[in-house]
Amino acid sequence: MLEVTRLSSRYGRIPALAGVDLSVGRGELVALVGANGAGKTTLLRVLSGVQPAADGIVRFENSDITGASPRQRVRMGIVQVPEGRQVFGPMTVDDNLRLGAFMRPQRETNAGLDRVYALFPALTNKRREPAGTLSGGQQQMLAIGRALMGKPKLLLLDEPSMGLAPRLVAEIFATIRALKDDAATILLVDQNANAALSIADRAYVLEVGRITLAGRGDELASHPRVRQAYLGL
């Protein structure tokens, strides 16, 4: 579904990605792990089109989208939950979710809202509250819900468990798992490598802009280098 070939990107003259090869098949949950500053967020930004690729090719459903605008990619079904949630703070939860459906036909909106509120009941009685007043966990649910409103074919998740209490981390991972069982295609970045690898079909390790290891989730979870560097074992 997604094929990334020799992808490079830089901030000014500082390279952040140096020839990344990666693929995600339909219905797969692929995890991307790596240390701080490895380039994980940069990769997702390039995939969403908010950061230009310096070199390489991104193909989605067999068409070259390397130069496509963020808007075109959302329309094609590539939707991102960005790092740090990035909700529209002063707007209500309901408005945040409706904006998630910005590229969808209006008649789908109500069904989409029902679906998100069923998935995250904690958001239901906050519908009319400004998103900025929600707790961190609720904001993360809102950010995921907003992305789901865009009917993603490929969901990009950047650090969905960052800064959350352990109980909420488990809840978010259970949700991601449920989405996967519901046949969603997901590319997941998370610092919680243990949890990410345990639910992933496949995984990649990114180090200073390069993919250094790739394999099945459980394989990587037991790989000595991964255990030492990312699982702290």
């Binding site: 529209f88 707007m91 904006l99």
Partner: peptide
């Protein structure tokens, strides 16, 4: 729709781009 898109952009430009606002 346009008005809300403009407000959303003012609150969070990155998030606005990520939902498809031009």
């Amino acid at each position: 729709r346009l008005g809300k898109a403009m407000l959303a952009t003012s609150y969070n430009r990155l998030a606005a781009e990520l939902v498809g606002i031009d």
